[in-house]
């Protein structure tokens, strides 16, 4: 897990499903975001990421996140994790 490459949310391409690994920035900010349902360990789909804020989908909720905040949210590909797991199985 440690050698997994973490990508800020703002750099994930559209249509990808990723898992949120960490939210940096102040503790206060992170706590408030957590309370909005945007927290470590959950999967999100990037709906739009080309200009201005990023749109992400969590269940039925859609959030628009400004560029600043989406740079602070680190993600890992949740699909890649499955691949890795499959590789392990093969071994």
């Amino acid at each position: 897990m440690n050698n997994e490459i973490l990508v800020p949310l703002g750099f994930v391409s559209e249509g990808k499903k990723v898992r949120i690994v960490s939210i940096s920035g102040g503790t206060r900010l992170r706590n408030r975001i957590n309370e909005m349902g945007l927290r470590e360990g959950i999967d999100v789909i990037i709906i739009k990421n080309s200009f201005g804020p990023v749109i992400i989908a969590i269940g039925q909720t859609r959030f628009a996140l400004g560029r600043g905040i989406s740079a602070k949210i680190l993600t890992e590909s949740s699909e890649r994790k499955v691949e890795k797991w499959l590789l392990k199985l093969k071994k």
Binding site: V44, I45, K48, F51, G52, A57, I58, G59, Q60, R62
Partner: peptide, 18 residues
């Protein structure tokens, strides 16, 4: 329900287009 792309998302991609 699994998180999935909806029609509303497709529309959002247009009305928020660059």
């Amino acid at each position: 329900a699994e998180t999935k792309v909806t029609r509303s998302d497709l529309i959002d991609r247009v009305v928020t287009h660059k």
